[in-house]
Design a protein around this nucleic acid. Structure first.
Lengths: 220, 220
DNA sequence: TAGATTGTTAATCGATTAACAATC
DNA sequence: TAGATTGTTAATCGATTAACAATC
């Protein structure tokens, strides 16, 4: 039993490290596009404005992707980080709430490139019935349960008012959704095996505002 | 000279603390709405799933808002955190890129409640010329410089493709914009007195995806 | 081989939690 | 006053940076 616990423990990479991976992925993608074949942690650190030590430390959580005296092969590292992030597999997702933000996400086709496949949108507004976005249909919210039972959907993006969020999330979870990308301005309380990633736009804007005030203070 | 440096130093609240303030603000707002008059760090900690110690420590970075034996007055604390976040002042902002995401933000009227006043949108698409969103006009991007010189705009939200982001950001900064709310999938390199707050949606989705893969691994 | 650069251990720094005296 | 709860100091924990031996 002990080794099992440890095996799980071993996988527990800190949140700080995870949140840096997409950024590495982005920079490596740019390098790849620019035709760069290899890069050292030192050169990458200059581009990314982080320490080389942090880059090496971060990557070594997942394995030795580099080679002494050479550095990192850009294409290889890009692919490996993609695998770590689960981008080598397809993820079917739906959007609940086909308002402005929901439609904005639906139109954002570049998610598809990373394996995120939008299958349907849902809304309560009867005017949206039958509407399609990039060929993807908007369905009525009362069809949600039936739909989930017949389709293999992994992720749901919640782009609806916070008053409805918790309620809908419960339905989603009861019907097998494993992960929720939450844009509602509320913290969902769900079983802890459900993955919730929240984007709180208002919070982000407030941080910006804090920094402005701060900046003005110091000016004085 | 030393005391000046220290004075500035003193203000340097850690990023972790700042990023928790909007969440406190949100919870306090809910409590206020629910008619709760006072709350102890212990009760709040249970609601927010953080330690009471962290709450007290965080708040004490800014001053003693509580009272021994009583706790915190909800309304007072809410107002004070609002001030810290700069929400007691109005902030004029514009949106560059009136595509789906730009329009979604423009329609998101609740920003106004916190003092963020949308003054105009800008786009290159001639079809959007003259269009208004909630009465706010979309202007053509070539009018941007002139507009900035005649209007007092503090914040610009960048909701445009990353290929245009850097270029537009430079124009913004050259014309007095102090803060950029960046939705383009790129890190802007700007003078360090310009405040940049980025929302990288793709990064967020990748974190979600990582956690799904992780979860599946452990299941096995 | 010599030079470069990783992987990894050790040292430092910072953030979180615990504890408790101060005080309402 | 006694009880409750803060503000704050001290202890712990975790994350970042520095250093360097291993090795390509």
């Amino acid at each position: 039993m002990m080794w099992r616990a440890m095996e799980v423990e071993q996988r527990k990479i800190s949140r700080a490290v995870i949140s840096r991976l997409p950024r590495y992925y982005r920079y490596l993608g740019d390098l790849l596009e620019a035709g760069v074949e290899r890069i050292s942690s030192n050169d990458l650190s200059k581009k990314m404005q982080v320490t080389a030590s942090q880059i090496r430390q971060d990557l070594n959580n997942f394995g030795g992707f580099g080679q002494q005296g050479y550095g990192y092969n850009v294409k290889y590292l890009y692919t490996e980080i993609g695998k770590i992030l689960g981008l080598d597999k397809d993820h079917n997702f739906i959007i609940i709430g086909a308002g402005n933000l929901g439609q904005a996400l639906a139109n954002y086709a570049s998610f598809e490139r990373n394996g995120f496949i939008l299958k349907s949108l849902f809304d309560v507004n009867p005017r949206l019935e039958g509407v399609t976005i990039r060929g993807i249909p908007v369905r009525m919210l009362d069809e949600l349960e039936g739909y989930l039972q017949e389709n293999d959907i992994e992720i749901a993006a919640l782009t609806l008012p916070k008053s409805k969020a918790e309620e809908v999330a419960d339905v989603l979870v009861a019907n097998g959704i494993k992960a929720i990308w939450n844009f509602a301005h509320t913290d969902l309380t769900l079983p802890k095996d459900v993955i919730v990633e929240s984007v709180h736009l208002a919070d982000s804007l407030m941080k910006l505002s804090y920094n402005i005030s701060q900046h003005n203070e110091i000016q004085k």
